[in-house]
Computed example of a mutant assay.
Amino acid sequence: MLVIRPITEADLPALLQCAEESGHGFTSLPVNEEILNNKIAHSIESFAKEVTKPGPEGYLMVAEDTETGEVAGTTAIEAAIGLDTPFYTYHLSTVVHSSRRLNVHNVVKVLTFGNDYTGVSELCTLFLRPEWRHGSNGRLLSKCRFLMMAEHSERFDKTVIAEMRGVSDEEGNSPFWQWLKEHFFSIDFTLADYLTGIGKKGFIADLMPKLPIYVNLLSDEAQAVIGEVHEKTRPALRLLEQEGFTCRGYVDIFDAGPTVECDVRNIESVRHSQSCTVSIGEPGNGRDCLVSNVSFDNFRAVAAKVRFENDEQVVVVSAEVAEALQVKNGDQVRLIA
């Protein structure tokens, strides 16, 4: 069984392994032990912090195999992005150039540089190692964050976003970045991506073109990947789309991958999650659910079969599940089918 829990200092080697396996374009997991150690320390501090409104907190969690103790993946939420360091995006929009006198009417796409998402919450750092990519593990890793948001809404903004990894090859070459590199930068995509991951974003403001870029001036290869996702990211995007997330034209400034967003109140798993009282017993042929405890600093979430009683006010869970969630009879849990 996989259980989602807050990361600890002892998880540094596992987090470094996840960073190495995640590959190019995974900005939130740079292969840098010092940076990852700082992320862990920041997360531990954030989980312990008393919060009444979202700030620069970052909540990093891991999925642990309860039988082996091995870490299967990571998942995280940033409470409010862009407060300490700018969060840049391109916005893809349409402009019209027309002349009645000449009877010319042209509709063109432009990319506008900005930081419109400052202060919103971000889903990030979702990575499941290949050997665990089966069953409900991926859904657990993604959806557990919505259980946390539903139970502890004061810690998160009303708008939630997620950056989807854009198109790049196995060597980390991005067609979109290639065009930017030729005209405005002189560094490879992998280096730019790494510098962003470790927080050194000053070069972006220094070198990124400030005026809108006309999309039809880009190379055909760069145009083709705007708003497209990396093949390994498609399952994560499908999960978010099922939750109600959509792209409103915002794309990553490096690989042009889409940024999707949703009002937290409209996220399907937030809307349909429910709070129940725990009864430890035999769930039998119950329903498959994702279940979390209601603690924050000691958050736990699992995928398990449960049985409802008393008009779904009481949920029967096995002793193993109760132990994983660190709950006892009479405690509250939050769950989604």
Rank of each mutant, 00 (worst) to 15 (best):
V167L: 03
R165V: 00
R238T: 15
F245C: 02
I77T: 00
L335N: 08
F189N: 00
S168A: 14
G281H: 13
I44Q: 04
Q313A: 10
L325K: 01
L126W: 13
V251I: 15
G138I: 03
S279D: 09
Q274W: 09
D65G: 00
Y194H: 11
R139K: 15
N103D: 13
N137I: 11
F203P: 07
D65S: 05
F176A: 00
L217W: 08
L102Y: 12
F296W: 06
S22D: 11
A337L: 01
K305H: 03
R133V: 01
A41T: 12
K53R: 05
E33T: 04
Q178S: 02
A192C: 13
N106M: 07
F47K: 02
L140H: 01
M164A: 10
V108F: 12
M61T: 12
F47V: 08
P54S: 11
L126M: 09
T233R: 02
E261P: 05
L126C: 05
F113K: 13
H105P: 00
Y117F: 11
I44K: 09
T85P: 04
T125S: 15
H152Q: 12
T8D: 11
Y214P: 04
I40K: 08
Y88H: 09
L102S: 05
Y59A: 00
E151S: 14
I204T: 06
R334Q: 11
K143C: 04
E320M: 12
G114R: 03
C247V: 01
F26Q: 06
I7E: 03
S98R: 06
V225E: 03
S168K: 09
S273M: 02
R334N: 14
P235E: 06
D116R: 14
Y250I: 08
L128I: 13
E20S: 01
V278N: 01
L180D: 00
A72R: 03
P13A: 13
C124F: 01
F245V: 06
G202C: 14
T74I: 01
G114E: 06
K200W: 09
R129P: 03
T112V: 12
E67R: 01
V95N: 12
C289Q: 06
L237R: 13
E182Y: 13
N115L: 01
V225L: 02
E241F: 10
S168G: 08
D220E: 09
L195C: 11
I77V: 14
K53Q: 14
L218W: 06
E320D: 15
K109Y: 07
N37Q: 15
H91T: 11
I35Q: 15
V120A: 13
A304L: 00
Y214V: 15
V225D: 07
D288P: 04
Q242N: 14
D297I: 10
I35N: 06
I204W: 10
A79W: 00
N285C: 07
V291T: 11
F176W: 04
V104F: 04
P6H: 03
E163Y: 10
I187K: 12
L195A: 15
E122A: 12
V315H: 11
V120K: 10
L180M: 14
T68N: 03
G197D: 02
N216V: 02
G69Q: 10
A304M: 05
E154W: 01
D311A: 14
S318R: 08
A63I: 06
V229L: 05
L2A: 03
C18A: 15
I81W: 06
I280M: 14
V160T: 02
L195N: 14
I161P: 00
M61N: 11
V108P: 02
T89F: 04
T277Q: 09
A322K: 04
I187Y: 05
